[in-house]
Design a binder for these strands. Structure first.
Lengths: 200, 200
DNA sequence: CTAAAAATAGGTCAATTGTCCTAGAGTGAC
DNA sequence: GTCACTCTAGGACAATTGACCTATTTTTAG
């Protein structure tokens, strides 16, 4: 019981530190200090740094799965669910300004390190992609569902990237509105199907 | 002369390594080995690691300025110039798949490190932004020029981020086409002005 | 040619890294 | 109580890090 708690504390602290500082720049000492345990105890729970990374990725994956499942159960309207996703940019604005998107930045870092867990990290991005595809399918996007999902996902990632660079609150609000608008309009303007619906 | 050459070799090697491995994961030894010089010689040219970083950022900045200036001189059509910018995603696809966008990833990393040169790195992103604003102004976007510029910039950043995660060549080609389409159409679909022009 | 300056080499330094190891303390079953 | 097992603490390790230093060698200036 206690051990499970300590283990979870380590994972939580590592999750936060990996997000704020990056995986490579976070040392065992950083995590141990954050949890107030000895390095020896640390190695009882995780034998290598990669093991902690994998545990953190699994936690993030499971956290996001819970989040998406909550939205699925909360609203019967796929457009509203997509809106929840996009509005993360606003809800987590402060952290995004400082540390970027947790998923995007980890994906980038591990890809650069050519780290073995890089593919694991990509699964989180894949989770978002697949969930968005499902939402757009329910929205009646048919064969365009995947393209639209990827568009929303990449758009969000881009906004997060620029948010971190410029820290422009108005920009984030404006872009979120534009994404929601695009979703609501069936997105004819992107050159994706439904040209007849081009509104305004 | 010789020294200038060595110094430039160091900057070039550091530029490449910072891109491929990240700033934090690149050591003096890595760069020295890449240039085949001793660490002692290294410290003759750069007293600290931050000094190399600043030199690399200056080089990147100046490289991008040259690139943009070339496009300015090459074509009288702003839309065509913007297209050059967007098509970097295709031209540099291989490297983007592996290392992401050089500008975006450095911006992210330095922001996370809360590094003193973070603001310097952001200047490169700012260079792109300002250049794009100018192009859209010439294109007659008026007061919307900035919003459209930021849209193209964030869109590109997002595509680069997803390209790195999924390595989907078709996705990149498709998104580039969509961006060019959006630029060519005056981008009414994003909710940015000129609604009357919304074609197809 | 010669003296000053620029450039290069390589050793040394303390600090930090990830990892391993052993010695206890705590806990539960019987 | 005792025994086995889980958990915790902290020392030791080699390797690597950024940084400093003192000698050489090479180049340049007069």
């Amino acid at each position: 019981m206690k051990s499970s708690s300590t283990r979870q504390q380590i994972i939580d602290a590592a999750d936060e530190l990996f997000y704020a500082q990056g995986f490579g720049e976070t040392s065992f000492a950083d995590i141990a200090k954050s949890v107030s345990i000895s390095r020896g105890n640390f190695y009882y729970h995780f034998k290598t740094k990669d093991e902690i990374l994998d545990a953190v990725i699994e936690k993030r994956l499971s956290d996001r799965e819970d989040m998406l499942r909550n939205w699925d159960e909360m609203s019967g309207n796929p457009a509203e669910r997509i809106a929840c996703f996009v509005r993360i940019l606003i809800v987590n604005q402060t952290k995004i300004f400082a540390y970027g998107c947790p998923v995007g930045t980890l994906t980038m870092e591990l890809a650069k390190l050519e780290h073995a867990s890089s593919g694991n990290a990509n699964r989180i991005m894949g989770l978002f992609r697949d969930w968005l595809i499902r939402q757009f399918s329910e929205l009646g996007s048919g064969a365009d569902a995947e393209a639209r999902a990827l568009h929303v996902l990449s758009w969000s990632q881009g906004v997060a990237a620029l948010a971190q660079a410029f820290r422009d609150e108005a920009f984030v609000l404006r872009e979120v509105d534009k994404i929601l608008d695009w979703v609501g309009r069936g997105a004819p303007s992107s050159g994706l199907g439904q040209p007849g619906l081009a509104g305004i």
